[in-house]
Design a protein around this nucleic acid. Structure first.
Lengths: 200, 200
DNA sequence: GGTTGAATCTTGACGGCGTCAAAATAGCAC
DNA sequence: GTGCTATTTTGACGCCGTCAAGATTCAACC
C-alpha cells in the first residue's frame, strides 16, 4: 500500500499521524498546518478531511498518543514505602526527560491549543484523566510515610504534578529556566516536598 | 483628541493598547487579530503598523504591562524571618488571584506565543527577569530560617515559582484543576514547601 | 463481468489572517 | 503658502482552515 502514484493512498490515516508528529517536533504547533502536512504526505489539501474531522481532531489524536506514552512512564513508578526517595527521583527525571525530548508534543498535550482554544476530544480527555488517576494511585501518600494532618493524597498529587508541570513549562518556554539548571531545580523541589511529607 | 471622524486619530497608540487589552481579556490571544483591533479602534487595518512594528511587538507591550503589575505584587511581599508563613500565604493568594483574574494576560506573559513562537522584546525580557530577581530577593532563604544544607536560595525560588506557575497553568488550561480546588491545592503546596524549608 | 454505492481524493472557492507597497491626507516648521 | 514628515488609506500577496461539487477507485452484489 501507499504507492507513490496511486489515486488512493492506502495508508493515509497513519501516514498523516506519523508525518504530523515529525512536523510537530521539527516546527512546533505553529508550523503544523494541514496544507503543509498534506503536501508532505503527497496528497491534496483537503484529503486529510476524510480521515480527521478537522485540524482539532488530528491534534487531539497526536496528544492522545503522547498521553499513552506518559501513562507507560507512570506505570513504572513504584515507590518503596520504606524509602520512597529514589523511586520518586527516578520518576521526576523520567518525566522531565519525557517533556524535554519532545517539547512540542508535551506542549500540545497540556497546552491551551487543545484544552482552551480547541475542543479536547472525549478520548483525549479520558486518557489524560486516566493518566492523572494512575499518578495519584502510584503516589499515594500512604506510601510516603502514612497519612498525616492535612495531607490529602489528592492534594499532594495535584501539588506535586503542578510543580513538575510548572518546571517543564518554564523550561520549554525558556523564561526563567535553562536546561542546565533543570536538574538542580527539580532536585531542590523534590527535596523540599519530600522533607515536607516525611517529617513527622 | 481622538474625535470620531478625523483622519488623524490622535491617540491611536494608547487606544490600541487599551482595546487590545479588552479584546485579549474577552477573546483570548486567538481572538486578538490586528484587523479586528483596528476595526475596534475605528481605523484601517494597517494603521497600527505605524505605532507597533508588528503584532509581536504589540503583544510584547501588552505582556510588559502585565509584568509591571506583577512586579507591584512582589514588591509588597515581605516575609517576617521569625514567621514567614502568613506573608507567604498572602503572596500565593495574591499571585493566584492575579493569574486568574486576567488569565489571558497571564497566558500571554508566560506562554509560548511570545517566548517560544514569537520574539520577546528587549523591554519585555528585562521586566520579566527583573520581576523574577525581585522575587528571589524577597523570598531569600535566609528569611525562611537561614541557609541550610543544599537549599540554594536561587533554586528554592525557582522551584517555588515553578510550583506557583504550574498551578496557574493547570488551572487556566483546565486540565487537572478546577477553580474550586485551587486554594486547597496551593495551600497544600505551601505547607509542603514550608515544612521542607523550616524543618531542622 | 458489469453495476451500483460508498469510500477516497481532487479542484475550486470563500473568508480570515499578517504584512508589504504605494498613494492620499493632515500637521508642523519655516 | 511651501515643503517635510508623520499618519492613515486602499490594494495586493501568500498563507491558513474548511466547505462544496466533481472525479476516481474500490468492494460488494447480481
Amino acid at each position: 500500500m501507499s504507492r507513490p502514484d496511486r489515486y488512493h493512498h492506502g495508508d493515509l490515516h497513519d501516514t498523516l499521524l506519523r508525518e504530523a508528529g515529525v512536523l510537530l517536533r521539527e516546527q512546533g504547533v505553529e508550523g503544523l498546518s494541514l496544507r503543509r502536512l498534506a503536501e508532505r504526505a503527497g496528497v491534496s489539501r483537503t484529503a486529510p478531511y476524510h480521515h480527521f474531522e478537522d485540524k482539532n481532531a488530528l491534534l487531539c489524536a497526536l496528544a492522545e498518543r503522547g498521553f499513552q506514552r506518559l501513562e507507560g512512564l507512570i506505570d513504572e513508578l513504584s515507590l518503596d514505602p520504606a524509602d520512597p526517595e529514589p523511586g520518586l527521583r527516578r520518576f521526576v527525571r523520567a518525566y522531565l526527560r519525557f517533556a524535554s525530548e519532545d517539547g512540542e508534543r508535551y506542549e500540545l498535550m497540556f497546552g491551551r491549543t487543545l484544552w482552551k482554544a480547541g475542543r479536547p476530544s472525549a478520548a483525549l480527555t479520558r486518557v489524560a484523566h486516566g493518566c492523572f488517576r494512575r499518578y495519584v494511585e502510584a503516589m499515594g501518600v500512604e506510601r510516603l510515610g502514612g497519612p498525616r494532618d492535612g495531607a490529602d493524597p489528592l492534594r499532594v498529587a495535584q501539588a506535586s504534578w503542578a510543580t513538575l508541570h510548572g518546571l517543564c513549562r518554564l523550561l520549554l518556554d525558556g523564561i526563567y529556566l535553562r536546561r542546565e539548571d533543570m536538574e538542580a531545580v527539580s532536585d531542590q523541589a523534590v527535596t523540599l516536598m519530600l522533607a515536607g511529607l516525611t517529617r513527622g
